[in-house]
């Protein structure tokens, strides 16, 4: 694995112009590179991942901490946005996961804000989209999955297994349904993480493909219009995927905190 060497050679090729040929490197934007110098990417290396995650943290602090520092009864614009985000997620947790899940509100808020800011920062040209990596989304999804499982067993003991036993179904169907429920329960972290990473990766890759087409004179107007359209779609997707991740987290938390015998 020598991604940096590859990148250098690609750049060299692009510089040569390839005689009007198409240069497709739609996945280059997802490369994890050390920020300072070359070398292997170790666990604690400061990489572009570090940079863009740090920017995400700074944006969140700017909006939610600096934006609300006046604690005004009549809010400023930034404070309004922060309050809007607070109200939006608080109501989501309360409505979807129930009143018992309010103690997980900071957690859901953390996930939502991290994803939404990472997604939007990823839309900046030349940026790096941390949420397009399956490693990142899988850790969050597994975290939610383990949390839900542990809280479920801690709150209900073995009674938590009741979520697999649909008591409202006819008795003969219950074992089959239980099997389906168990499978779907364990597929949750997979779908939860791949949905987000896949959406982000696909959109960014498509934009890059059209950007490559923009170099060809005959189709460049079409390509530029297509980039604009897909960019607009990606803005929408960036928010919707963060929303979907948060609301699914709430749905899973509901299983853990509410009565499993429904």
């Amino acid at each position: 694995m020598r991604p940096d060497k590859r990148r250098t050679s690609d750049l060299a090729d692009e510089a040569k112009g390839e005689e009007g040929g198409l240069v497709f490197h739609p996945m280059d934007q997802f490369l994890v590179k050390p920020l300072f110098g070359d070398g292997p990417v170790g666990m604690f290396t400061i990489t572009n991942v570090t940079l863009w995650m740090a920017l995400t943290v700074l944006c969140i602090i700017a909006l939610l901490v600096l934006g609300t520092r006046s604690r005004a009864i009549i809010p400023s614009r930034t404070q309004s946005v922060a309050e809007l985000a607070y109200g939006f997620i608080f109501k989501m947790v309360e409505d979807v996961a129930g009143k018992e899940a309010i103690k997980f509100f900071p957690l859901v808020m953390t996930l939502f804000l991290f994803i939404v800011f990472a997604n939007f920062l990823g839309l900046l040209p030349m940026s790096f989209t941390t949420t397009s990596h399956i490693a990142v989304t899988a850790v969050m999804a597994m975290g939610v999955f383990l949390l839900v499982t542990l809280v479920g067993f801690w709150k209900h003991g073995l009674g938590f297994l009741g979520i697999f036993w649909i008591s409202s179904a006819p008795l003969i169907l219950r074992p089959i349904l239980a099997l389906i429920e168990v499978i779907s329960y364990f597929v949750r972290p997979l779908s939860h993480s791949i949905r987000l990473a896949g959406n982000m990766m696909a959109g960014h890759a498509v934009i890059k493909v059209f950007a490559a087409f923009a170099a060809v004179l005959a189709i460049s107007p079409f390509a530029i219009v297509a980039i604009t359209a897909i960019y607009a779609l990606e803005v929408l997707v960036s928010f919707i995927q963060a929303y979907v991740f948060a609301i699914l987290t709430c749905v899973y938390l509901k299983d853990a905190v509410s009565d499993p015998h429904h």
Partner: peptide, 12 residues
Amino acid sequence: MPQLDFSTFPNQ
């Protein structure tokens, strides 16, 4: 896919 480059996983 750089996403499947497992060498960068610990870092991320």
